[in-house]
Write a protein that binds this DNA or RNA. Structure first.
Length: 644
RNA sequence: GCCGCUGUGGCUUAGCUCGGUAAAGCGGCUGAUUCGUAAUCAGCAGAUCGUGGGUUCGAAUCCCACCGGCGGCUCCA
């Protein structure tokens, strides 16, 4: 709720015209006023909807406090929508206003201007120092906090944080917030194990860490420019906005779909090698399910909801629900632990604020690998955590982002005290200083988490990989395993997204490529992700047949043939604009000699090699990574244009 | 809700100040060219200029309302 409090000599209003949301009023209320009163302009917001009673109580307390300070016994409640951009439903707003009136009327003379009318009003402000005040009343952490430290800290797993936060936090008014707020302490932990306050650390050699810190702590401002990757995703025919859907729901063209599938394959393969099993769970859940209901009621605005046949569902924002419900029904022995389960959530849904949606960086529907590991106890959870931390490093390196992220580790003070050495080890493993956020007490469902954050050209940080140790949800979902004494115990649960959202990986790769081109080098995608790996350009029609032979020889490589009737120069240029790593021009010379002239994009030079050598070259740079065949007609003349 | 920016062929944009029903490049199609490492030449098709009103003999252009997109918006105004 937003409050604007004005100590006024007088306030008068007159209703003019109804709006569609107007409350019915008696004629006597059509005009009104009050002398020597505290006028409270009120905007009820969506944040207030989960708990109107508490909102009214907190607001009343705030108004009383001010009324006492300015020593007035009269209060005018005046609904004023223009104080907020996140207005609550009118019914809730009226309810809260009436409650406020009721509460305040015990101690004050209270008048209330009608809701939902265009009103003319005159007010005279006394003008002394306390005569103009504004207040924000928030359930939970509060607007400023929500935009700041809490935002995006878990990357694509953030929704879970949000719920936990509200669980733990009481309704807090602006005045009390500073005392009750989850206090974050920011530090840098160096590779030598030194925990330094951020202002004592020398960032000279770590500019990206500095940018990350700035983003986290001081929240850099939005930049009013289309992010580079948005243009690239379109131009490379990877993905695009879909005007026929809700914002933040993308369409993926064939090339983008291929890239996405390859990344998905890679993540699934990687965790499967470490024993994870793949599952699939529903995308929507009953809002009235007993285990889920109490959390969801609190965040109606953040989910997509679906009405179907008198029942209400919400769209999942991670795979936790489905997997935990599955775990709940399973019979699990200590012999099965640690037990890993992964789902490539297509999709996870989050109704992010409009202003936050950008290209592939932040979406309302996104694909996230979500793995949960049940561990017998904290000790085993810590061992797993370390394992998965190292795995995430490998994953980002394989994806092509080896040196492109900054690390944040966040934990409670208790956890730190007990596991100091473990945390220092984590820093040694990445071998660079790490941003530390330390909480005095646990406000979330986890005791420790880390993320690897990509920092883009506009200084925006986005979480990719993350792992958290969850000490609450086993209880909440009643998940248990049987130990060797036949006793039922609660497992400790790890949440892990090895790569973070797949779309976000693509975003990071494109942003990185953009930076590369800005610095004067050639931008590209890793070869294993390139939609076309080898482009064959037959000089004239008579070379086409030979080109097809070469294509046949390049087994296990994504090859296509630009058979369009265009000049060689033009087709070379087209291949370059598509970032194709290897371009082969095939003419009389090649047909005669059997040797190919291969332009290697990454080295900007030509090499002479046979088809077999080229095949080996591609195989060696893509070794160990997934392969899928080309996802478009091999002949370019057969391809339609998807964009532009 | 308020403020700002914005909406012209598939794409990128010009035209809008000072009204005369639309221009270019890319892409597409047709034809010529069969070509050796970042754009061959010529022609054709393709736009009720976001929507609805208004002013006017005449509106992409001026006015009003609405819709969509992007960004911003409390306590100093």
């Amino acid at each position: 709720m937003q409050l604007l409090l004005i100590h006024s000599d007088y306030i008068e209003y007159e209703t003019k015209k109804k709006t569609p949301v107007a409350e019915e009023i008696e004629p006597s209320l059509k005009r009104g006023g009050m002398e020597d009163a505290l006028t409270a302009f009120v905007a009820v917001e969506t944040y207030d909807e989960p708990d109107p009673d508490r909102t009214a109580q907190n607001a009343a307390a705030e108004i009383k406090k001010t009324a006492e300070q300015v020593k007035t016994g009269r209060i005018m409640l005046y609904p004023y929508a223009h104080l907020s951009s996140e207005l609550a439903k009118p019914s809730v707003a009226v309810d809260i206003l009436k409650q406020l009136e009721e509460i305040l009327s015990h101690d004050y003379e209270v008048a209330r201007a009608p809701f939902g009318w265009y009103k003319a009003f005159r007010i005279s402000c006394k003008g002394h120092p306390l005569s103009e005040l504004s207040r924000t009343i928030r359930l939970g952490e509060g607007a400023e906090g929500a935009e700041g430290a809490g935002r995006d800290r878990s990357g694509e797993r953030g929704g879970e944080d949000e719920r936990a936060k509200t669980d733990k936090k009481e309704i807090v008014s602006e005045a009390l917030k500073s005392e009750e707020k989850a206090v974050s302490h920011w530090h840098i932990l160096t590779t030598d194990g030194e925990l330094l306050p951020t202002d004592e650390f020398d960032f000279a050699k770590h500019p990206d860490l500095k940018r990350f810190l700035d983003y986290e702590v001081s929240k850099s401002r939005a930049v009013d420019r289309i992010p580079p990757h948005v243009e690239l995703m379109k131009r490379l025919e990877l993905a695009d906005y879909e005007p026929g859907s809700d914002s933040g729901n993308m369409r993926f063209y064939p090339k983008g779909t291929l890239v996405k599938r390859l990344l998905e394959d890679y993540v699934i393969d990687t965790v499967a090698k470490r024993g994870a099993v793949e599952v699939e769970t529903p995308v929507m859940y009953d809002v009235n399910h007993p285990t889920l209901k109490k959390y969801l009621d609190r965040f109606p605005a953040r989910q997509y909801s679906i009405e179907s046949d008198k029942r209400s569902f919400f769209l999942r924002f991670a795979a936790c629900f489905g997997q935990f419900l599955m775990n709940h029904d399973m019979t699990i022995s200590h012999r099965n632990l640690p037990m890993k389960m992964i789902e490539m959530t297509r999709y996870s849904f989050r109704r992010e604020q409009h202003g936050e949606l950008v290209g592939l960086r932040r979406l309302r529907a996104f694909t996230m690998p979500d793995m949960h590991t049940l561990c017998s106890d904290m000790e085993s959870a810590i061992a797993e955590f370390k394992d998965q931390y190292a795995m995430c490093m490998d994953v980002l390196a394989d994806i092509g982002l080896a040196d492109d992220y900054e690390v944040a580790i966040r934990f409670t003070r208790d956890f730190y005290t007990e596991n100091r050495q473990f945390i220092e080890e984590l820093v040694k493993i990445v071998d660079k200083p790490v941003l530390i956020e330390l909480w005095d007490s646990r406000f979330f469902y986890f005791v420790i988490k880390f993320e690897f954050n990509y920092i883009d050209a506009m200084n925006k940080a986005s979480a990719l990989s993350t792992v958290q140790i969850d000490v609450e949800n086993a209880e909440r979902y009643d998940i248990k395993y049987t130990d060797k004494n036949g006793e039922n115990l609660r497992p400790t649960i790890l949440h892990c997204s090895p790569s973070g959202a797949i779309e976000r990986c693509i975003y990071a790769l494109l942003e990185k490529a953009y930076l590369t081109s800005e610095s004067g080098a050639v931008p590209s995608l890793p070869t294993w992700l390139s939609p076309t790996q080898v482009r064959l350009i037959p000089v004239a029609e008579r070379h086409l047949k030979y080109a097809e032979e070469i294509l046949g020889a390049l087994v296990g490589v994504r090859v296509d043939i630009d058979d369009r009737e265009e000049t060689v120069g033009k087709r070379i240029r087209a291949a370059g604009r598509e970032w194709i790593p290897y371009v082969v021009v095939i003419g009389d010379r090649e047909v005669e000699s059997g040797v190919l002239s291969v332009t290697v994009r990454s080295e900007s030079r030509k090499v002479e090699e046979t088809a077999q050598e080229l095949r080996n070259r591609v195989a060696s740079v893509t070794a160990g990574m997934p392969y899928r065949q080309i996802n478009l007609p091999v002949m370019l003349s057969r391809r339609a244009v998807f964009f532009g």
